[in-house]
Design a protein around this nucleic acid. Structure first.
Lengths: 232, 232
DNA sequence: TCAGATATTTGATAAATGTCAACTGAGATG
DNA sequence: CATCTCAGTTGACATTTATCAAATATCTGA
């Protein structure tokens, strides 16, 4: 299951903001030099400190990115398909700051770092897309850090739910794709605390049934969580 | 005090990683379309949500960038000269996510956002430098967020001191350029808590005299703060 | 230099979060 | 179908951090 990209995968990858605008021939070259690989669940793809050999594009499955500080580690991002990840390390040819682990069986496009750096230098549209992608990622982190510094746990959870509901356009019901312990780590709290945060949100329009969360009163939740007014 | 860049300022700005590699004529064009302005202390340069009209380069003085979440706000960065700031908002033509305020009287080069975006499109070296800058900024934030999630306050302070000592190459003594309340906000704690964190670090090789902090036993401090092993 | 304003520190207390242990329930396995 | 395992929840308690108040230090400007 290891080899060049097959035809079937290309369109959805080519449609990514990162690759969308670039020259077709160059894109072809990138794909030809990359390989799509299948990984089992719970496999570590790379670890903090390792040299960044590949830009990753998750085509199918689920991946966790975690970072370490003072010995312990924390979930930084849960990557859903189709998304590229670990772009910043690749661009600057620096060691990974995060560890990546599959949560489910996943298909991942591995783009050799040297290749993508070379094509970035040659293709202005790709470079510009990379720049945009990094700037957006930066802004996401600014928000995440401000949230972490200023909001308490139930509020962070409330905002996470509102955000998920908005972007999955699932309307009012959110299906958690990962375990709750992971969500807890992503939101910077313990599983016990997450559990209590969910209880607290019951009074603010949130109903929980296993991994299915419904926002039954989104005004009430908004009033409690005070989401950031500036759109992404 | 408002006008085109005078000769005296150019060299140090041109030496910035962001502008260093670009075509000389293009750089000249950027400078010609920008203006250097002097601001008094405690002046708000722009606020969250405003449209990003200028890339800023702090030439002299001190600037605070703060972000807002749930009504309150927190210091995200203390900008020292000579550094550009607010690049991500300018690149993507999006509203500022942060508020900027001078802490001291400051001279700032204001580069019109439309101009820098245009020149970025034309000059590959500048685009690449922008991309690199954003990727590095992203990585800084990854670290900051992991720290915030995983370390407690005295540990965060310890690491901040180690990092400052390393980069200012001031050796063992750090001069705080801003008020301690600001440092507290930057590190995500209250001023009271910062004060106690300093007391706690007394037992780990740190001596405080007003705004002058000495690391008298850097091994002890390192043992306590367990700094991240991966270099910046 | 002194008075007033402001920053910082210290103490007492409250709130939020983490830790540990026990319990519950759902899914997996034989 | 029983039971085994483990994620999730709940309760009791410890720790960390915030809050409020007061005391002290530092800075500013007349």
């Amino acid at each position: 299951m290891n080899g060049f990209v097959r035809i079937g995968e290309k369109p959805e990858i080519a449609r990514l903001p990162l690759f969308r605008e670039m020259d077709d021939a160059k894109r072809e070259r990138v794909f030809a030099g990359s390989f799509l690989q299948v990984f089992p669940p719970q496999l570590t793809l790379f670890e903090v400190g390792q040299h960044a050999d590949f830009l990753h594009v998750l085509v199918d499955g689920l991946v966790e990115l975690s970072a370490t500080s003072g010995g312990r580690d924390t979930t930084m991002r849960i990557v859903e398909p189709v998304t590229s990840f670990i772009l910043a390390a690749v661009v600057n040819d620096l060691p990974y700051l995060m560890t990546a682990r599959t949560l489910e069986a996943s298909r991942i496009l591995l783009v050799p770092a040297a290749l993508i750096r070379e094509v970035i230098r040659q293709d202005t549209a790709l470079m510009q897309a990379t720049m945009r992608e990094l700037a957006l990622a930066y802004r996401d982190l600014v928000r995440a850090l401000a949230d972490m510094k200023l909001r308490q746990s139930a509020e962070r959870l409330g905002n996470y739910l509102l955000q998920q509901a908005a972007q999955d356009d699932a309307g009012r019901t959110i299906q958690l794709r990962a375990e709750k312990r992971l969500l807890a780590s992503l939101l910077g709290m313990t599983p016990e605390n997450l559990s209590r945060a969910f209880s607290a949100l019951a009074a603010h329009g949130v109903r929980v049934e296993g991994s299915s969360i419904s926002i039954v009163d989104s005004d009430a939740l908004r009033a409690f969580a005070r989401p950031d007014p500036i759109p992404v």
